[in-house]
Amino acid sequence: MTSLTALFIVLALMLLIVGGKKGIQAIFSLLGNFVWLFLIITLIAWDFEPVIIIAVFGLIILATTIFLSDDNDQVTRVAFLASFSVLIILIILILPLDILANVQGFSNENSEELEGLSLTIGISFIKITMVVTILATLGAIAEATMAVAAGMQEILADIPMLPIKELFGHGMHIGQQIISTAINTIFFGFIGSNLGLTIWFIKLNYSLELLINTKIFVGEVLMLLISMIAVTLAVPITVLVMQRDIKRHRVKQ
């Protein structure tokens, strides 16, 4: 058995023991996201338009992560709609950004790994960078919108007839409570996955002027910043979507 298989079996067993039914859902959510990722890469390699692929699969990944995490209909519905809105804003922000920043593809630092590979593959790496940036952010968006939606739902369960205007303040307050840990989740994730690169820059004595213009460094930092922006925007957007959802509910009654 390979180490990877053994690790996965242990994770799956633990999810089952600790989570029960929720654990099974989490296993499916992880496997599902892996399959979507496999499809994204394959379809892009088959010349499908990357921007359309990420818009479609971005939604599917959000749905997989959100609907398999929580069982509360209102929480998942609001979280999904809010995540969808954040995704659209992100795509609009990233399109010009990645064209202007020129952080796509590879750099001299990668020359060893690139040996023997043909780079003229006819797929725009600018678009691939967009896909990468959005993918890396999706999990964090889903998590933040769910946290805010679930928190607001709890308040409503306590005070069902809370005026809609007051709900906004409560929602933003919940957002302010979760923002620090939500941002730290992505921040630590990013510095963890880029630790080797950071050590490389320092060991090879990159000067500050070189660093803040280097393709790889700027590319990674931009990705982290976009994730942070996405999580920050996720809070007010979720609050607004929740407000609308409640309004519609109350009108119906």
Binding site: G19, N33, S69, I121, I128, G139, F190
Partner: peptide, 28 residues
Amino acid sequence: QTIMGALTSVLFLIFIAEALPMSILYLR
């Protein structure tokens, strides 16, 4: 139990997204 799956997905997507450009290059 409610948040453990989503949090694992957050890290999964960060780690695997980075491998995407090289993977597409390999396939092509």
